[in-house]
């Protein structure tokens, strides 16, 4: 009984300790951002690793998500004779929700796990402590460029995802199922608002980008420096950032599109 209580306390303390360390790291990362202006090449390398290499999965899944949306919504809307509204429904679904959320989930799986594994391995092979020995701050040199790279890459990836998805829905709806091309685009343009829909989607994806890269960088930096510890940290990155994205998405949606 006493053992059990002690373990509970240890877990609780461990949780708060990690929570505190995570936020202290966030502060350190933010402090490291201005220094990156002097070394933009570091950030460019990270945008390549995080953003460019994620392009393929984003474009392919965006196309298929858009095509499935077109097919499913067409079958529902045609019962009401409202298949002309396919355009706005596909576009709003993608721009407001699926674009930012699915991109963030893929981003966590594709880029977040890679970040954690890379940083965790750097720690396990004592490259990070080596840097500290040479008076190079690993937060500024290693973690901050990855953090900024993720924040820049995520909204761009989400915008590409949404656009590709709209064209996927267009391909299925207009190309295969015979929805009128004019009503697909014109209804979409009259229903989708730039400030309220597109910009809110961009804000969402920016927030998700910050959260996912933050979690990935923190888990890598906080990993137990063994091969098992790195693999656990990688798993935790994917699980925690997916949960954070889905939970935050509800909060953000409620704030943005909730009660008028």
């Amino acid at each position: 009984m006493l053992d059990w209580l002690a373990q509970l306390g240890r877990h609780g303390l461990g949780f708060f300790e990690r929570l505190g360390r995570g936020h202290l790291l966030l502060l350190a990362l933010l402090r490291g951002l201005p220094g990156l202006l002097l070394r933009p090449r570091l950030v460019v390398q990270q945008i390549y690793a995080i953003g460019v290499l994620s392009l393929l999965i984003i474009v392919v899944s965006g196309t298929f998500v858009g095509m499935v949306l077109g097919l499913q919504l067409y079958n529902t809307l045609v019962d009401f004779g409202a298949e002309a509204s396919l355009g706005p429904v596909v576009a709003l679904t993608l721009v407001r929700e699926l674009g930012p959320v699915v991109t963030a989930l893929l981003f966590a799986g594709r880029a977040g796990s890679a970040l954690t594994a890379e940083i965790g391995l750097m720690k396990a092979t004592e490259q990070l402590s080596g840097m500290e020995m040479m008076a190079v701050d690993p937060v500024k040199r290693v973690l901050a460029p990855r953090f900024l790279g993720g924040i820049i890459a995520m909204p761009l990836l989400a915008a590409i995802f949404s656009l590709v998805g709209v064209y996927g829905g267009y391909f299925v709806g207009v190309g295969l199922l015979g929805v009128d091309e004019g009503s697909y685009w014109s209804q979409m343009q009259s229903m989708v608002d730039f400030d309220d829909d597109v910009m809110n989607g961009v804000i969402k994806s920016l927030v998700f980008g910050v959260v996912v890269t933050w979690i990935a960088v923190f888990e890598g930096n906080d990993a137990v420096p063994t091969s098992e510890g790195v693999s656990r940290a990688t798993t935790r990155t994917v699980v925690h950032s997916s949960l954070a994205v889905l939970g935050l998405d509800f909060v953000l949606t409620a704030l943005m599109f909730g009660v008028d």
């Binding site: 945008i47 390549y48 953003g51 460019v52 392009l55 576009a91 721009v95 820049i152 890459a153 909204p155 761009l156 990836l157 915008a159 590409i160 949404s162 656009l163 590709v164 709209v166 685009w185 979409m188 343009q189 009259s190 989708v192 608002d193 730039f194 829909d197 597109v198 961009v202």
Partner: peptide, 19 residues
């Protein structure tokens, strides 16, 4: 190319998808 494509996508969303 990646950054240009992302910005272009955003621009297209503004022009083609929204009003």
């Amino acid at each position: 190319v990646f950054v240009a494509a992302g910005l272009a996508a955003l621009f297209m969303l503004a022009m083609q998808v929204s009003n």
